Simulated assay, not measured.
Amino acid sequence: MRAYVDRCGGDADAALALYRWNAAASGAYWETLSHLEVVLRNVLAEQLAARHAAMGRAGTWLDDPAGELDQRARADIREARRRVVAKGKQPADGQTISELSFGFWRFMLARRYNTVLWPSLAGGFPYAPDRARTTIDAPVTRLHLFRNRLAHHERIWTEPLTARYEDILGLLHHVEPRIVEWVRQECRVPLLLNSCPIARPHP
């Protein structure tokens, strides 16, 4: 609580109010990010599956028959399949994909795949302003780091929260603008941003 107490000038009650707000805001962002994560992994997986089929390769893109994925990605896929089996299920593509972390999908957008995977992955973002890899990679990277703060229950009132919300909506818009409206209908983020008990260092 030290950071909260210090920010509130030693006022324990105000610090507790800020702590509660931080928890509520984190929950709202977590919920909204979950929508983006599902959309992102489905879009990327669909593009990779279509690319795999178009190339006439055996098996599935998760098997990486051409050795295009790096060692970390292959290890993540093996671990995802192991977890599926440990749950008593068959490691079909859908089950495996749902076990892959947000970080896995982030690194599918990395520079190392710029000329290998990205030309196909770009098709998953038909409403983006351009086909530059960084148009998608940059906000996904920022959100991955932000997601890690949420997962570790760290304070987020120090973060540029409006910008992170715009990152989420922007990425969803690049996939399908109608998803943005659907997410906004129940999203608690704007209300909470306006109810923070302190003046945050960033908008």
Score class of each variant (00 low, 15 high):
3 A>Q: 12
6 D>S: 13
6 D>H: 10
7 R>D: 03
7 R>P: 03
7 R>F: 14
7 R>A: 12
9 G>S: 07
9 G>H: 12
9 G>M: 10
9 G>F: 10
10 G>L: 07
14 A>K: 10
14 A>L: 12
15 A>I: 00
16 L>H: 12
16 L>F: 11
17 A>M: 11
20 R>F: 04
22 N>I: 09
24 A>V: 01
25 A>R: 01
25 A>W: 05
27 G>K: 03
29 Y>R: 04
29 Y>N: 03
30 W>Y: 13
30 W>Q: 11
33 L>M: 14
35 H>Y: 15
36 L>Q: 07
39 V>Y: 11
39 V>E: 02
42 N>K: 13
45 A>G: 13
47 Q>P: 09
51 R>L: 14
54 A>C: 06
55 M>P: 00
55 M>N: 12
56 G>H: 08
59 G>W: 13
59 G>Y: 14
61 W>Q: 05
61 W>K: 02
61 W>H: 01
63 D>K: 00
63 D>Y: 08
65 P>N: 13
69 L>K: 04
72 R>P: 00
72 R>N: 15
73 A>E: 14
75 A>Q: 11
75 A>N: 11
76 D>V: 02
78 R>N: 11
79 E>H: 10
80 A>V: 01
80 A>R: 02
87 K>G: 15
88 G>N: 07
92 A>R: 15
93 D>V: 09
93 D>P: 00
95 Q>P: 01
96 T>R: 00
99 E>T: 01
100 L>P: 03
100 L>D: 08
101 S>T: 13
103 G>Q: 07
104 F>E: 06
109 L>F: 05
113 Y>Q: 03
115 T>V: 10
115 T>E: 14
115 T>I: 09
117 L>W: 05
117 L>V: 01
120 S>H: 14
122 A>T: 06
125 F>P: 04
125 F>H: 06
126 P>W: 04
126 P>V: 07
128 A>P: 05
128 A>H: 07
130 D>T: 06
130 D>W: 08
130 D>N: 10
131 R>C: 05
131 R>Y: 06
131 R>V: 04
133 R>G: 01
134 T>C: 08
135 T>F: 00
136 I>Q: 02
137 D>E: 06
139 P>K: 04
140 V>E: 02
148 N>I: 08
150 L>K: 02
151 A>H: 12
155 R>F: 03
156 I>F: 01
156 I>R: 04
157 W>L: 03
160 P>K: 00
161 L>E: 05
162 T>C: 14
163 A>P: 03
163 A>S: 15
165 Y>A: 14
167 D>H: 08
171 L>W: 05
173 H>S: 10
174 H>L: 00
175 V>L: 02
176 E>N: 15
182 W>V: 09
182 W>D: 05
183 V>Y: 12
185 Q>P: 00
186 E>L: 11
186 E>T: 15
188 R>G: 01
189 V>T: 03
190 P>M: 05
191 L>G: 15
195 S>I: 02
195 S>E: 06
196 C>L: 13
198 I>V: 11
199 A>R: 13
201 P>G: 00
202 H>A: 08
203 P>S: 11
